[in-house]
Write a protein that binds this DNA or RNA. Structure first.
Lengths: 320, 320
DNA sequence: TTGAAAGCGCTAACAC
DNA sequence: GTGTTAGCGCTTTCAA
């Protein structure tokens, strides 16, 4: 069996409570005593049993992060942010992938709720009511979603999209088309807001490569000089379609993405897109969770997004 | 406070031990009694306190998976496999990103060891000795690494590479060059084995886009008709370099990747590469962990890889 | 500043 | 088949 607090107490010639205090409330123990205890702890390699501690304090020292799709390059980087910040506080992180299924998502949150101090929920597919219920039962922070009364951190997509529009306008584009994401997606609406009604809207496409491929076909017939994609994956699909049909990007048509995933730098031409501070979002989410755990009020944070200009946008050609 | 086993016992008019048994050893309880207990459990929404259970059983019902880099698209899919399989057993999963640092990696495994039943360690950067030490202290399963006496699951890279070579040979290529990954990487050596000494070897490159870009420059001067990249990222970098220098792929030069990451289908030309059963590897790792926890012996599994032929390879041109 | 003792919620002997 | 009871390892009153 592992070394327990009693082993430490015995060897340090103090009571178990003194050992406990030396570790979790150092101020309450005389310096000399504490030092002796700490030495023994180090010598024995004692690690407090988290289950026992948790049983009495009611805190687990763990948290969970729930995402809709781990394979979407957007989320691993959120996870990384969460882990970075949580790690600083000695907190470990559970991950859960809901596979884009709302029921699974709710189920996961409920399951985790009992074994963690709080949950970070990314890009939730749940209804406001369900989220409010969940938030009542366990400290909860949302990423990329706003629900009244629930903590959340947002990446300012609307503004990011405004930057895209401004950029395109400055290049002389007047006629551009938005290759929309899923109509139900909350973030799709945010991004559309940033368009300020300046773009033609094209139906909702699957937010992946194939969706973009399909979208480009439709978009091409509009005669627009620029395509604004809901996300990088759609933009990439569009790029592929255009390449196959010998439409030169950006000479004939400019294309923009959104999210700045890894591959946005690797395609050809490299994609002009909006960078999302995903890792920072994960970190901030952990901060908000900490606030909640200390009895603080739900908070809302919005992180700035930045346009990254690469090679897929250029001055509009005069003739379509 | 949450509902406890006593609340259930009281309402179901049985003792706490009956409730406990009804939940974790159903066979020991009369059907009628168990049903009554289960009804109350459902009615009250009772969830056993894992900390309390863990305190007495010594099992946490959790496991951890440690990866070197969450942002590498290879690993999230391993995570997903781990979670899928673990979830079936009601096990939750911690994730840790070592950021390619061996010290951090060892530290993480040690930290997690005390709060989980076992650890899945992916593409470890640690020495054999360290891994053996770790495995002695906690149930451990390796992915993509072999260490004597430690459970592991491997994806058969050597065979995958042989398939690449066979494919290239069948297309008439006789002079091809290997764009190598990190010399220290265990998987690089495995992949080189599959080459069977048939390829020219080019130094070790960073296993990313930039590394591939650099590699292509050197490879071009060898006059080879095909480039075999250590992984998809290097292949993608090579593709970009070749495109910029107006070298047609696959007409002039064939290029192959390895891993079959998402982007391998999205680039142009789509990459011929070796598909790795990453998700399956994660699942199998959990199985091996389960074996270990039941007192079984360390096991070694090797999963088959498959060549995926896309558009980046073609018949060798006659003249270089 | 320290120690003794009472549990946290649960499982696992041990009785019946 | 079911109930009683003794802890698992720890924190936290309460006394001293």
């Amino acid at each position: 069996m592992a070394v327990t607090i009693r082993d430490v107490a015995r060897q340090a010639q103090v009571s178990v409570s003194t050992v406990s205090r030396a570790l979790s409330a150092p101020g309450l123990v005389k310096d000399a005593t504490r030092q002796r205890v700490l030495d023994v702890v180090a010598g024995l390699g004692y690690q407090p049993n988290r289950a026992a501690r948790s049983l009495i304090t009611g805190r687990t020292g763990n948290l969970a992060v729930v995402v809709p799709d781990l394979l979407n390059p957007f989320f691993p980087s959120v996870l990384r942010g969460v882990q970075t910040k949580a790690g600083e506080a000695g907190t470990s992180v559970f991950f859960c992938d809901s596979r884009e299924d709302p029921e699974t998502e709710a189920e996961l949150v409920r399951t985790m709720a009992s074994q963690v101090d709080g949950v970070v929920l990314c890009a939730s597919l749940l209804s406001d009511e369900t989220i409010i219920d969940l938030a009542a039962a366990t400290p909860l922070v949302l990423i990329n979603r706003i629900v009244p009364g629930v903590s959340s951190v947002l990446m300012d997509s609307a503004n990011g999209m405004e930057q895209v529009v401004t950029h395109l306008e400055s290049l002389g584009h007047r006629d551009y088309v938005y290759l929309g994401g899923p109509a139900a997606a909350w973030s799709n609406n945010r991004r559309m807001q940033g368009l300020n009604g300046r773009a033609q809207l094209l139906g909702s496409f699957d937010p992946n490569f194939d969706g973009g491929y399909t979208a480009a076909e439709q978009a091409l017939s509009t005669g627009a000089t620029a395509f604004i994609a809901y996300n990088d994956l759609i933009a990439l699909g569009a790029l592929a379609y255009l390449a196959e049909h010998d439409v030169k990007v950006p000479e004939q048509i400019s294309v923009t993405g959104f999210d700045d995933i890894l591959y946005a730098t690797m395609c050809s031409p490299a994609l002009t897109t909006v960078h999302m501070p995903t890792e920072a979002a994960g970190e901030v989410a952990v901060d908000l969770l900490a606030t909640l755990l200390e009895g603080g009020q739900p908070e809302h944070r919005e992180l700035p997004t930045t346009l990254v200009i690469r090679a897929s946008t250029a001055r509009a050609h005069s003739q379509s």
